[in-house]
């Protein structure tokens, strides 16, 4: 079966959403700091998910855009 979905557009859109979503992890980090929670626990619980989310978002966005960047050049 030939897939005709525009996968690059989907990848681009999901990538952008994930990049935005990764920023929301900042809020529980602030709450954790306000309540003096263990800093390593905060890093493990929110900073790593934030980095992972941002990474996936970046990769998906790139997968949807690098071809376009090249053509613009």
């Amino acid at each position: 079966m030939k897939i005709t979905l525009r996968m690059r557009s989907i990848s681009d859109a999901i990538g952008l959403i994930l990049l935005l979503f990764s920023l929301t992890f900042i809020l529980p980090i602030i709450v954790g700091l306000v309540y003096s929670e263990n800093i390593f626990s905060i890093i493990a619980s929110y900073l790593f998910p934030m980095v992972i989310t941002a990474n996936i978002g970046l990769i998906l966005w790139l997968a949807g855009n690098v071809g376009g960047i090249r053509e613009k050049r």
């Binding site: 979905l5 525009r6 996968m7 690059r8 557009s9 989907i10 990848s11 859109a13 999901i14 990769i59 998906l60 790139l62 997968a63 949807g64 855009n65 690098v66 071809g67 376009g68 090249r70 053509e71």
Partner: peptide, 22 residues
Amino acid sequence: IILKYFGRNSGEGLREREAFVT
């Protein structure tokens, strides 16, 4: 993903079906 979709033609937009899938 990079191997599969890198360097395809650009200029694509989201159609209705891609929006739902997204």
